[in-house]
């Protein structure tokens, strides 16, 4: 993908510019920002949010929403930790169980959304609470620690110098981008978000596709949960509080329409990086804790406004 195409051809041009501007601004304020180790740190930090955001991008493009990401992440993180204990745990079993649990919760979301016709906002809000409770029940409310070295390697290890979470980040991006743009499934998801009735009349198996979309979101949340647990070496039942909002914010900042039917994984990746860069920059500049939240919110609003102005100018 060349630069011109991102800037002019795609929906993500505005956010790409905003990201560049942000990087220029921060690096002019501190020399610590534009170093290769710091850039690696940023990528490492955003990996979990990115994976959640990729999953929920499918949901949002299909015209839905998933608020249960953070809670599903916690359940999967705890389950993974329980199966990855240093005494007698098995990493593969842990991965399998956690992803399975994520898929199951996502599938339940999809099932309820399709059958009940209740807005996904409400359904996943319910799941958010249920899953949070489930995480506490499974872990008896305590962090699950003493995890095996091979499990922790997933969060802190590296492969040929590249930290494992970054490999996951790049891998999931490539897969999701491919699925969204090059497959029948991706086309169907976008069509449903664009006009659900017309998609149904055109013979698209709308219910099946929607079910898959929510299931995928659950699986990605679980993957995020596994990485987070591995990164902090514990399965925390209260992990991921509010993560759904970060992920959704990244998707929206990346130019995906909240009404569905339009969006890209590249946009989401840029949105995730944008949030990550601001977080990192605010810490590097040692902005006071109280002000961080104000600045963060202000910048996000500014970015979205700039983007909409940019999109209008393009026409």
């Amino acid at each position: 993908m060349n630069l011109k195409k991102i800037l002019i051809g795609s929906q993500s041009g505005g956010i790409f510019l905003a990201l560049i501007l942000m990087c220029v601004l921060i690096s002019s304020l501190t020399p610590r920002f534009l170093t290769d180790t710091n850039l690696l740190v940023i990528l490492n930090q955003v990996s979990v949010n990115a994976i959640l955001a990729f999953g929920v991008t499918f949901v949002i493009i299909s015209g839905g929403i998933d608020l249960s990401l953070g809670s599903m992440l916690a359940v999967a993180g705890v389950v993974a930790a329980l199966f990855a204990k240093s005494d007698g745990g098995n990493v593969y079993m842990a991965l399998l169980m956690a992803l399975g649990v994520g898929a199951l919760m996502g599938a339940m979301n999809g099932f309820t959304v399709i059958l009940s016709k209740v807005p996904p906002f409400i359904v996943t809000l319910g799941t958010m609470t249920i899953a949070r409770g489930a995480a506490l029940i499974i872990s008896s409310g305590r962090p699950v620690s003493d995890l095996s070295e091979s499990f922790n390697y997933l969060g802190n290890g590296d492969l040929l110098g590249v930290p494992i979470p970054i490999i996951f980040l790049v891998g999931t991006y490539l897969v999701c981008h491919f699925v969204l743009t090059q497959t029948v499934f991706g086309r169907y998801v976008t069509a449903i978000g664009g006009n659900e009735t017309a998609a149904w009349v055109a013979g698209i198996p709308v219910a099946k596709v929607k079910w898959w979309v929510y299931t995928l979101s659950g699986i990605f949340a679980a993957l995020g949960g596994i990485l987070l647990s591995a990164r902090i070496n514990t399965g925390q039942p209260n992990a991921g509080l509010g993560f759904e909002l970060d992920a959704i914010a990244a998707v929206i900042i990346g130019g995906t329409s909240t009404r569905g039917g339009k969006g890209s994984m590249t946009g989401t990746l840029l949105g995730v990086l944008f949030i990550g860069v601001i977080n990192n920059g605010l810490d590097l500049l040692n902005v006071s804790a109280y002000w961080q939240q104000v600045v963060m919110g202000g910048i996000i609003i500014l970015a979205v406004v700039l983007d909409s102005v940019y999109q209008k100018m393009k026409r």
Binding site: F33, T37, V41, Q45, I232, D283, A289
Partner: peptide
Amino acid sequence: LATQTGEWDRAKSMSLMENWIQS
């Protein structure tokens, strides 16, 4: 050198520390 909130959270404070190591 600096003080900042980690919101009682292990993952958040880990990110904070990573950023501090950079600066």
